[in-house]
């Protein structure tokens, strides 16, 4: 579709031309649509699910609870991946996710078990620490123009180190309020969801709203699309960048809380390398690693696909857990190549 050099004297003819042109371009645009990767991932999920249904029908795969368990077992990953989506959309990367999650489990367990603080006090502390950590990283990235990769790498070391500083041993959580929260279930008729899964879905909804219906969300896309332009357009790109890492830190801490709830212990080695799972989920969900394009809904499907791989491998029985990593890597590769092909075509 190109500009038309038609004279503007008759507004009406202009209008019809607009209609015709947009109809003609619609088909062409479908191919270049930014939603395409999300659709691909969603389709992949459905196909995998159907294949699972076919193969393991007799082993209870068709139970609705198997589907709901995807949310229960991966709620924390979804929250972490949502945080990572913000960072990646803005064109950055956050390697500290796994460490912040691990640190949060340790901090929570330590405060609750060793210091005897009530859970209701511990939660805001944990979230605040995570968000503050993210803020600091964002501040350094923006103000000193150091690559996000390196700054968040320092964050990875720092938080993992702080885990070990709290304790080398894992701390089991026996607090009754925690375990009652962990056991709480929301019945849905066909099955149930845990507190963690519900919180994860709420986070997803909030993230969707923020990214699509607030100026901050649009700025995230803008600086991911072209940071220099965003600056020349008068957008506060520095504040946005810092905010993005703060959001990621907050989400990681929240994911840490959910993980604590899920596993009911703090351990200095919890969630090692989970940043890779989060990044993989974001990329498989169709978000460009170079920033500026993608949807948080895609991230949901990315997490679900990763979760489904795990379930299928469990159901398969003969397959070992490492196939999860291999399958993740293969999917990652496929999506990176798809993205590459899409951006390459746009260039021409």
């Amino acid at each position: 579709m190109s500009t038309t050099a038609q004279p503007p004297q008759t507004q009406n003819s202009g209008k019809t031309a607009t209609g015709a042109a947009s109809a003609a371009s619609k088909a062409a645009r479908l191919l270049a649509d930014r939603r395409l990767p999300v659709v691909v991932t969603a389709t992949l999920f459905v196909v995998m699910y159907l294949v699972g249904l076919g193969r393991y029908q007799n082993f209870g795969f068709a139970e609705p609870q198997v589907f709901l368990n995807l949310f229960i077992d991966n709620g924390y990953l979804l929250v972490a991946a949502v945080g990572a989506t913000f960072v990646i959309l803005s064109g950055g990367i956050d390697l500290s996710v796994g460490s912040v999650i691990g640190f949060t489990t340790m901090l929570t367990a330590w405060l609750v078990e060793k210091q005897g603080l009530p859970v209701i006090v511990v939660i805001p502390i944990a979230l605040g620490v995570g968000a503050f950590g993210g803020f600091l990283m964002g501040y350094v990235i923006h103000n000193f123009e150091i690559q996000p990769f390196i700054v968040t790498l320092a964050g990875l070391f720092l938080f993992r180190g702080l885990c070990l500083v709290i304790s080398k041993e894992s701390i089991a959580i026996t607090d009754s309020s925690v375990s009652s929260m962990a056991q709480a279930q929301a019945q849905l008729g066909v099955g149930f969801l845990s507190v963690g899964a519900i919180i994860a879905l709420v986070v997803l909804a909030v993230a969707f709203y923020v990214l699509h219906y607030t100026r901050f969300g649009r700025r995230v896309y803008a600086i991911g699309g072209n940071e220099h332009s965003a600056m020349l357009m008068g957008l506060p790109q520095g504040g946005t960048k810092i905010a993005v890492y703060t959001v990621s830190g907050f989400c990681s801490a929240l994911a840490g809380l959910l993980f604590t709830l899920y596993i009911q212990s703090g351990d200095p080695l919890h969630a090692t390398g989970m940043e890779l799972d989060a990044i993989a989920a974001v990329v498989i969900g169709g978000t460009l690693l170079t920033g500026g394009s993608g949807y948080v809904v895609g991230t949901l499907f990315g997490v679900l696909v990763l979760g489904l791989i795990k379930s299928i491998i469990q159901f398969e029985g003969t397959l070992s857990s490492w196939w999860t990593k291999i399958a993740t890597g293969v999917l990652l590769c496929a999506f990176i190549l798809i993205q590459r092909a899409m951006t390459a075509r746009k260039k021409t």
């Binding site: 100026r215 896309y221 991911g224 699309g225 072209n226 965003a230």
Partner: peptide, 17 residues
């Protein structure tokens, strides 16, 4: 100096939506 990933309308109004 615009953001190619956003829609035309957004590019016109971003920052003052």
């Amino acid at each position: 100096n615009l953001c190619p990933n956003l829609s035309v309308a957004e590019n016109i109004f971003i920052g003052r939506e």
